[in-house]
């Protein structure tokens, strides 16, 4: 049977490799940036870029700033028969295009999918159960991803709303940062729950505004991701928020120093999304507040005060 191909690095990439291993699969991997073997997952067989032609299901898990370049390289060697499934929880900075939009610009295939959800690498490596949602409009892609990943410890849900899932999964990161700020205040769990819930409502407005389905927000791509992001010890985004609160200032340099490209990634995402602040009907108050913090216009403590003073919205 044909082996699936994987490309990428990072936590989600490691989680994916873990899921494949748990399901008894040995994937092939194109080592796109020539990493040392010790940094690669154990159960992979390395191949050259050209050999991707022979592997028709490709998983791509990369930071957003590498995505366009790498997918164009991949696009040179694949056909309309291939399926590409990505795991990136981000939007292209400035253009705010989703990764599936970017893939359809850079590769010849239309068969794209997005895999996301509460599948933390630590859980998978310890053999704990996890779940994810595969978003694609192509039933065949659902089927193939299911065959590759579903095991007794991994449940896979399906949705057709790929745009909605991509938007929700990215927007969660902003809310997670906000939750991180709040977590340091010691104001109790009620306020955390409020932020969690109002964050989802805001995310729903954003998703619907950009052409996704609001209800996708309340599935694994939205609430599932947000829950795992803020559950202890918290995602990088959550921890960046918490650290800012401890210092009561948002120091860009120290964020990037401590979290590297993952920190820069979050800051750029918030800055790009901030273009939507002007849209009063969308009422993206949490995004707006996070942006005020990131751009150092408001300290974290003042930002929380600011949020508390905003009028409540009727659902």
């Amino acid at each position: 049977m044909e082996k699936v191909a994987i490309i990428g690095h990072g936590d989600r990439f490691d989680a994916l490799a873990g899921l494949l291993a748990a399901n008894g699969k040995t994937p092939v991997m194109w080592n796109h940036d020539g990493r040392a073997r010790r940094h690669l997952p154990k159960n992979v067989e390395l191949i050259e870029l050209e050999a991707l032609r022979e592997h028709h299901l490709i998983f791509l898990s990369l930071p957003i700033n590498e995505m366009r370049k790498v997918s164009r390289q991949v696009g040179d060697h694949i056909t309309g028969r291939h399926a590409i499934v990505h795991l990136a929880r981000n939007l292209e900075h400035t253009s705010l295009k989703t990764v599936s939009e970017l893939l359809s610009e850079e590769t010849p295939t239309r068969r794209t999918g997005f895999l996301t959800g509460p599948m933390r690498e630590e859980d998978i490596s310890q053999g704990h159960a996890a779940s994810g949602v595969c978003a694609t409009v192509f039933p065949e892609v659902h089927e193939l991803v299911g065959e590759a990943l579903v095991s007794s410890s991994f449940r896979m849900y399906r949705t057709h709303d790929i745009i909605g899932a991509e938007l929700a999964a990215a927007y969660c990161r902003v809310i997670a940062m906000g939750c991180g700020v709040l977590s340091e205040l010691g104001l109790g769990q009620s306020l955390q729950a409020t932020l969690f819930s109002r964050g989802l409502a805001e995310m729903g407005r954003f998703v619907a505004h950009r052409g996704g389905k609001e209800r996708t927000t309340f599935g694994l791509a939205g609430s599932g991701n947000l829950f795992i992001d803020i559950a202890a010890p918290g995602s990088d985004d959550f921890r960046i928020g918490a650290a800012a609160m401890r210092l009561n200032k948002f120091d860009r340099k120290s964020v990037i120093k401590e979290y590297g490209s993952r920190g820069a990634d979050l800051l750029e995402l918030i800055e790009s999304l901030a273009a939507l602040r002007q849209n009063k009907r969308l009422a993206l108050h949490l995004l707006e507040t996070c942006h005020l913090m990131v751009s150092a216009e408001m300290g974290p403590a003042a930002a929380v005060q600011h949020l508390m003073s905003l009028p409540t919205l009727d659902d």
Binding site: E2, H56, L57, T79, G80, R81, H82, A83, R110, R111, E140, V141, L144
Partner: peptide, 9 residues
């Protein structure tokens, strides 16, 4: 164009 209507698998 024919590749578009082939089964992935």
């Amino acid at each position: 164009p024919l590749e578009f209507i082939r089964s992935v698998k």
